[in-house]
């Protein structure tokens, strides 16, 4: 699926014991795939910690609402290394909706890109 996010102003928490922490709050967005599509609800964020080698460790939590009203909890961890245009993530999904139960049972990888209007992630199931 393709996930588009719109984010609010960055919250720069600053230097923490694990590195410099930046929080990217999520305002909304959309997602569309073969089996599920809908919108991203406000309230999530991506917690990005800058590591000493110049990359970021990502930790995102978001709630997706499918077009039939089902809610899906999305989390991912990942690495963003702008020096080599590398943004790769490991999304996980949790849902109580039976029609999307397959999401509870799969692992996925995401390839992301930061665009002017927000991050875009192409997420594919590990087959």
């Amino acid at each position: 699926m393709v996930l588009h996010l719109t984010t609010a102003a960055i919250q720069e928490v600053g230097s923490t014991p694990r590195g410099r922490l930046f929080i990217f709050p999520i305002l909304g967005g959309s997602f569309e795939g073969d089996r599920v599509r809908g919108k991203v609800l406000a309230g999530g964020a991506d917690w990005a910690t800058a590591t000493a080698d110049g990359a970021f460790e990502l930790d995102l939590r978001a709630t997706l609402e499918a077009d039939d009203g089902a809610l899906i909890y999305l989390t991912f961890t990942g690495v963003r290394d702008d020096a080599r245009q590398y943004l790769r993530t490991l999304p996980r999904f949790e849902t109580a909706a039976p029609q999307y139960d397959f999401l509870n049972r799969l692992l996925a990888v995401g390839i992301g890109e930061i665009r002017p209007d927000g991050p875009v992630h192409i997420i594919e199931e590990l087959l």
């Binding site: 080698d53 790769r88 692992l107």
Partner: peptide, 21 residues
């Protein structure tokens, strides 16, 4: 049966492992 390994090392030869998925 699928898994998603992450690596951590302090050794410069293998530092690339710190930055990959």
């Amino acid at each position: 049966f699928r898994t998603t390994p992450r690596f951590e090392t302090a050794h410069p030869t293998y530092a690339f492992l710190n930055r990959i998925i």
